[in-house]
């Protein structure tokens, strides 16, 4: 589904954020990307739907080359859902309008169709009662669940999560993770940048560990938590799992 091969990316002439990154996400697979801050994991996931350009290598998404100038990027992006650290709901639109906008403007669905789809997804994330509120009237956890619903409304073939729980209060993290766990169980293809190792050990198939722009470790879940081969991954795990 997602093929990342030999991706190199520089900011400016000398600072290399991604170094020869190669990995893949198969259909129905859940891959967690972790690593210390500044390791390039958010940058990598943003390269997948071309929110960030990269200079070398290639990424192929469902058979379509992302970094091909001829690729219709808006059309490709519409097929991949993305959830951001800071939710990024559109503050001037009601919750239901947040869910409908791209369905209507990008997929060309009728308003009624979009509302019906939006209602169904809001019900699924437990927020149907809030459909007519504005984002600022919801808690962080609720906003992030809306953001997931907004991405799902596009019927994506894969979902990208960029630290979806990092900006949340502890008691709101689980309500968002619950939605993500359900999605994983349904067989959604997911690439998740997160520090939530509980989530990783529960639903991930593979775990990728990044440090300083490199993919240091790319292992099956049980191998990663059982016996990570690299020192750096071991240190990272011992730090975040010790509390």
């Amino acid at each position: 589904m997602i093929e990342i091969s030999h991706v190199n990316k520089w900011y400016g002439p000398s600072f290399q954020v991604l170094k020869d990154c190669t990995t893949s996400v198969a259909k129905g697979e859940v891959v967690v990307v972790c690593g210390p801050s500044g390791s390039g994991k958010s940058t990598l996931i943003k390269c997948v739907n071309a929110l960030e350009p990269f200079q070398e290598g290639q990424i192929i998404l469902d058979g379509i080359k992302v970094n091909d100038p001829k690729t219709d990027l808006p059309k490709l992006r519409a097929r991949v859902g993305m959830v951001f650290q800071h939710f990024e709901l559109f503050p001037h639109l009601r919750i239901i309008e947040n869910l409908c906008l791209a369905q209507e403007k990008v997929l060309g669905r009728s308003h009624d169709e979009a509302v019906a789809k939006g209602d169904k997804l809001l019900e699924r994330v437990g927020l149907k009662a809030h459909a007519n509120k504005y984002p600022a009237e919801l808690s962080g956890g609720q906003q992030q669940r809306v953001a997931i619903a907004r991405a799902l409304a596009m019927d994506p073939i894969a979902m990208l999560f960029d630290e979806p729980t990092s900006a949340l209060d502890p008691e709101m993290i689980s309500e968002v993770l619950d939605v993500m766990v359900d999605l994983a169980h349904e067989g959604m293809t997911m690439m998740v940048v997160t520090h939530e190792m509980g989530f990783a050990s529960k639903v991930a198939h593979r775990v990728i560990f990044m440090d300083k722009g490199e993919i240091v470790e790319d292992a099956q879940k049980k191998d990663f938590f059982g016996s990570p081969r690299s020192d750096r991954a071991q240190k990272f795990l011992s730090k975040i799992l010790s509390h």
Binding site: K46, L51, R77, A78, V80, M82, F84, H86, A102
Partner: peptide, 22 residues
């Protein structure tokens, strides 16, 4: 926030649509 533009882009909105609606 820069994420607003990213969110619009990630949903498949074109640059013009992103400006117009978001």
């Amino acid at each position: 926030p820069r994420g607003q533009k990213n969110a619009a882009t990630a949903l498949g909105l074109t640059t013009a649509q992103g400006y117009r609606y978001i």
